[in-house]
Design a protein around this nucleic acid. Structure first.
Length: 976
DNA sequence: GAGTTTGAAACT
DNA sequence: CAGTTTCAAACTC
């Protein structure tokens, strides 16, 4: 996989490969032509795509890291380690690996690829996308943000300072000298690969790719190396303050962020009152992580950074500082790896394992979260902790993904303590290991240091659970040095985190070469070794939960696939507690991992060799629980034999038919298995809700998102009532929270390497509460309401007041027209959960399908042909949860689409008004809520105008099939 | 926390 | 490809 990928990446970066398709996309053209605002973004997105389009390095995450690091890094700073030591460690690793050492070459290639990407990105994104964002009123903040950014950096620096010593101490304690060597090596690589001249660019964060590539690095830069970054920024002519912020934000936010994401991120940040916080928060973690990775933090640096911080800007508010600190604290050396899916994430831009389907790697999933965090503020719902913690100040939502993690309490607590809580409490969530949390609590550097010092030991101690509070997996490898697939981290394409208890770990950024080499070797043996373990088989049903299958299937003999020994079952039980993920769209960085899987529900399949299979999600030989009435028949074949239209029709029909059933009972079986909540409470203590949302963002998608975001933002701003949270949520949603379930259809069909497929722009996941089933009624109640609200909000953002919990609303993907669960409420208990999951499932899958399909098939499908509009009125549907849900998927699409261009030429005044109107239009027109029939006359008129535009747009884009139907409906309403 | 069980990964 | 060994996670006590 990897080897081929590199060249592809480069190629992808080349304008020829990527840009053309993007430009060709109807959406793109439309945007460029119609939308004044978006064109930029669109272009931006398009540009970003190149990175996305870059061949899927899907599983080359390590590479990515290397790329990033090399390209971006200023790691040199880190490394103060003696180069002499480094060789030893390297040698050991190599020996261990036993492979030929081509790592450097490989790395070089990677770097080259990264460089090219970065360049492209820079030119494209920085100039255009960023500027636009800056231009936005919202972005006005950004200009100021330069300042804010600096503070962030400063803060990060500070944190870094504190951390650095600790890290060193820790390592010293462990007696790992190898670490010292590591940084040096990295530096060398980076230097060799990248000319120093280019680095600044990276530092500036202008280049999207770089941001991606350097997830780690960015983090490092931003946080640990804030000083340097600043310098870079300052020096770099290309990085105006605004840009800098964006870039930083972007970087921090995610590995995932692509060029498009930048804009989004930037926007988000801008919006967020406390940009700095958010940015920092998101950034910090990564930064810290990376930074931390290099054990050699020196006091010098720290001091300098601190000074800079102080000098450059007044410290952020205490709250902010705290947050930052917390975030920093949270980051740990290795956590970088854990939190950041270097391999995956990093690779994501370049590589997207789309082909494999929805690959879900447990690890990957977990890892994905971190990315999001940076970019987003997430509300995390833990089993216990349903409370929403939302960054009020920051648009950033941290995600909290966890698999069966019960450690969340710690995290949440820490976060809460550290974070000020507004009605909508804002929180900076750390993926956090307990350590992080603790750090945050104390906020004291000392404490942090202590933690760090003890980190090594702690690692060893390792909690019984293999997963962090974040849900990140921790390995405990003792003999394999984390360079074999035995290591979950390694297998997932991520570096080991600090929380790992592994011994003699080489799966760390310092040993990139080794890691890469090893990976190559393994891949040589088995190209799919790093592929997502869960894949949707082309031939399998798409809608059934079972559609997602374990790549190879299990071989259980004694566990009957009822224990975690079984990979299929294991995956199926993986769930996110709660998470709202916003993936920065551009993602290049989108990882397959980014998927948020509420629930995988992976059943055993014929591919399994298990004996006595009792996998609740599907037994060997059958495709699992498929009572939904959705059968393979229903699903068009992935091969793309069927036309998209046909598929849609089929789906719609099925959905309609099923809708009743779904909402009537608990059977909210989502069409997509993945979303199903496990009915098998028995097996799954917590109802695992894996939401596998896959973000694949075609260029058009990206564009849309960005534009949408803008509009959303502005609108949000206007709507004061909604409050920050709302803004955040919307922004997030605007950002492209497409809660997409992976498009199975597309997966099969889509060219894995096709740019379109590549990055998933953003993922907004709302993960249902963890333990939906198990949660206490109290929590459930709140959560329910939240969800309900959320759904409503989406539907009718304006209509409903935002509650503190509103944050959750956005959790539901903005795109998702979440139908109201059961009308007003979700059923209780499991029902609720199911409802959520169902919603998610339905929506997500649909969206994904639709989007993906549209994206891919847009050209093919003519709007007219595709009218998939269900027989029902949307209005009714909206009212009727069941039908609505089913359709929601499509509606989602609509929503997402609307975001694109402010369709309105109609809107007399563009700018905020226009945006707003657009948004409203979206909401009304596109959102189910709107459909509900809340049009005012004024709106109706606007709608008329807009409808025209929209129609044209839709027709143009191919979304028309959706759009048209709705438009017509709306028209009917709007027009007296 | 130690020991056992289990099945994937690695090896032959 | 099959069988065996190694490994680390999952599980049990």
């Amino acid at each position: 996989m990897d080897s081929p990928e590199i060249p592809k990446i480069i190629a992808s970066t080349s304008p020829s490969s990527d840009s053309p398709p993007v430009q060709e996309s109807p959406v793109f053209s439309y945007i460029s032509n119609l939308s004044p605002i978006q064109p930029v973004k669109a272009s931006h997105a398009a540009q970003g795509f190149p990175g996305l389009s870059s061949p899927p390095l899907v599983f080359t995450s390590p590479r990515i890291n290397t790329l990033r690091e090399t390209s971006f890094l200023k790691r040199p700073q880190y490394p103060q380690l003696s180069s002499a030591e480094k060789p030893k460690a390297q040698d050991e690793a190599k020996k261990f690996v036993d492979g030929p050492v081509d790592s450097k070459k490989h790395i070089t290639q990677l770097q080259m690829g990264s460089i090219t990407d970065s360049q492209d990105c820079e030119t494209n994104s920085s100039s255009e996308g960023v500027d636009e964002y800056l231009a936005d009123p919202m972005e006005m903040d950004c200009t100021n943000s330069a300042q804010s950014v600096n503070p962030c950096l400063k803060e990060s620096k500070i944190s870094y300072k504190s951390e650095a010593p600790s890290e060193q101490a820790t390592e010293d304690l462990q007696g790992k000298q190898t670490f010292d060597a590591k940084p040096v090596k990295i530096k060398e690589l980076s230097h060799g690969a990248l000319p120093s001249s280019e680095r600044p660019k990276v530092g500036s964060g202008i280049s999207v790719d770089n941001a991606f590539n350097g997830e780690y690095h960015h983090g490092l830069h931003n946080q640990g190396f804030g000083g340097e970054h600043q310098d870079d920024f300052d020096h770099s002519p290309q990085s105006p303050p605004g840009r800098l912020q964006i870039g930083q934000v972007y970087e921090d936010c995610t590995e995932n962020v692509g060029g498009t994401s930048k804009g989004i991120i930037g926007n988000m940040i801008l919006h967020a009152p406390n940009k700095v916080k958010n940015d920092q928060g998101g950034m910090h973690r990564r930064c810290l992580q990376f930074e931390e990775a290099p054990p050699c933090a020196t006091g010098k640096r720290d001091s300098s950074s601190i000074e800079k911080v102080n000098d450059s800007e007044p410290p952020a508010s205490t709250a902010e500082l705290e947050i930052v600190k917390v975030s920093y604290a949270a980051t740990s050396k290795r956590q970088m790896g854990a939190s950041l899916p270097p391999l995956y994430g990093g690779s994501s831009p370049l590589t997207v394992p789309k082909p494999s389907g929805i690959g879900l790697h447990l690890n990957s999933i977990v890892n994905a979260v971190p990315f999001v965090r940076g970019a987003t503020t997430s509300i995390k719902l833990a089993d216990h902790d349903i409370g929403l913690q939302v960054m009020k100040s920051s648009a950033v939502v941290s995600h909290h993904l966890s698999e069966n993690v019960r450690d969340d309490t710690e995290t949440s607590i820490a976060a809460s303590s550290s974070i000020t809580q507004s009605p909508h409490t804002v929180e900076f969530e750390h993926l956090g290991s307990p350590l992080e949390e603790r750090k945050s609590d104390s906020q004291n550097v000392d404490s942090y240091k202590e933690l760090n010092q003890s980190s090594s030991q702690k690692k060893r101690k390792r909690t019984p659970s293999s997963k962090d509070s974040d849900g990140c997996k921790r390995c405990n490898c003792k003999k394999t040095k984390c360079l074999k697939l035995y290591c979950d981290c390694f297998a997932a394409g991520v570096y080991c985190a600090e929380t790992c208890a592994c011994q003699g770990c080489f799966n760390i950024p310092d040993y990139e070469d080794t890691v890469l080499e090893t990976r190559q070797q393994i891949e040589a043996r088995n190209p799919l070794a790093f592929a997502p373990k869960i894949v949707q088989l082309e031939e399998e049903i798409q809608f059934t939960p079972a559609s997602a299958r374990h790549k190879r299937g299990c071989n259980c003999k004694k566990s009957m696939c009822l224990k975690k020994y079984c990979e299929c079952y294991q995956v199926s039980n993986t769930y996110l507690y709660f998470h709202v993920t916003v993936f920065v769209i551009f993602s290049f960085s989108i990882h397959p991992k980014c998927h948020f899987i509420l629930k995988a529900n992976v059943g055993c399949s014929s591919g399994c060799r298990c004996d006595g299979c009792k996998n609740v999600y599907g037994r060997k030989g059958d495709y699992g629980p498929i009572d939904h009435g959705v059968t393979k028949d229903m699903i068009s074949d992935k091969a793309g034999k069927e036309t998209f239209d046909e598929k849609l029709e089929m789906v719609a029909t099925k959905k309609d038919a099923l809708s009743t059933e779904l909402y009537d009972s608990h059977n909210h079986t989502p069409l997509t298995p993945s979303f199903q909540c496990s009915d098998h409470a028995d097996n799954v203590p917590k109802s695992p809700c894996l939401l596998t949302s896959y973000l694949r963002s075609p260029e058009s998608d990206l564009t849309v998102i960005s534009s949408y975001e803008k509009s959303t933002r502005s609108s949000l701003r206007n709507s004061e009532t909604s409050g920050i949270l709302l803004e955040t949520s919307k922004e997030l949603s605007g950002m492209g929270y497409y809660c997409w379930q992976e498009d199975y259809d597309n997966i099969g069909i889509a060219d894995t390497f096709s740019p379109r497929y590549d990055a998933a722009p953003i993922i907004c996941h709302i993960t249902p509460l963890s333990d939906l089933c198990s949660k206490a009624s109290a929590s459930s109640t709140s959560s329910r309401s939240d969800w309900k609200n959320a759904s409503q909000v989406q539907l009718c953002p304006e209509s409903q007041g935002l509650s503190s919990n509103s944050s959750l609303r956005w959790c539901s993907s903005p795109l998702t027209p979440m139908t109201r669960l059961g009308g007003t409420e979700c059923s209780q208990g499991l029902d609720f959960d199911h409802g959520l999951s169902d919603i998610m499932q339905e929506e997500m899958p649909d969206i994904l399908k639709d989007i993906s399909a549209t994206n891919k098939s847009v050209k093919v499908s003519s709007p007219n042909k595709k009218r998939v509009s269900p027989p029902h009125n949307h209005n009714h549907e909206l009212g009727a949860s069941s039908s609505g849900s089913l359709r929601s998927g499509r509606k989602f699409i609509l929503k997402a689409v609307p975001s694109f261009p402010p369709l309105t030429p109609c809107s007399s005044s563009k700018g905020s008004n226009t945006i707003q109107s657009t948004r409203n239009l979206h909401d009304k027109v596109f959102t189910p809520g709107c459909h509900c029939g809340n049009f005012s006359q004024l709106e109706a008129e606007d709608a008329k105008i807009e409808i025209k535009n929209h129609e044209a747009f839709w027709e143009l884009t191919g979304f028309g099939f959706y759009r048209n139907s709705e438009v017509k409906r709306n028209r009917a309403r709007a027009i007296p």
